[in-house]
């Protein structure tokens, strides 16, 4: 399970990425994240982040009747959100390759020595 503190830094960007795939709603976002291996994230954790993204103009919401029954709030990316998503991936990949390089240089080497 990914520690909450570690998750916090990337969850906004990951939610943007999920919404970028297709228009979707809170519970579905939490389920899709779980499907990608982020662990169980309550809809109550996702909701405040959606409010933040909406407030920042990165996503916009519309209320619609859902196929399954009750009206739901569906979110989609705005042009500003698409830009923010591209920036998120660029930053994430830079962070990821830096952490990977560090791991290779420290933990990776010690792993090789033990084998």
């Amino acid at each position: 399970m990914i520690p909450t503190q570690m998750l916090k830094g990337v969850l906004d960007g990951c939610i943007l990425a999920v919404i970028g795939r297709r228009e979707t709603y809170g519970y579905e976002i939490a389920e899709m994240l779980r499907g990608y291996g982020f662990g169980r994230i309550a809809e109550g954790t996702v909701y405040p982040l959606l409010l933040r993204l909406e407030r920042g103009g990165l996503i916009e919401a519309t209320y619609r009747d859902s196929a399954a029954g009750p009206r739901r709030k569906y979110y989609r990316l705005t042009a500003q959100g698409q830009e923010a998503l591209r920036a998120f991936w660029a930053h994430y990949r830079a962070l990821s390759s830096a952490a990977e390089a560090l791991w290779q240089d420290t933990e990776g080497k010690s792993d090789e020595q033990t084998h």
């Binding site: 809170g26 519970y27 309550a42 809809e43 109550g44 909701y47 399954a68 029954g69 009750p70 739901r72």
Partner: peptide, 20 residues
């Protein structure tokens, strides 16, 4: 929040499962 709870109720989940 009402709609989150209503959705959760339809799935058989209580408020703690939906909200935390």
């Amino acid at each position: 929040i009402r709609q989150m709870l209503a959705d959760g109720e339809a799935r058989g989940e209580d408020a703690a499962a939906v909200i935390g």
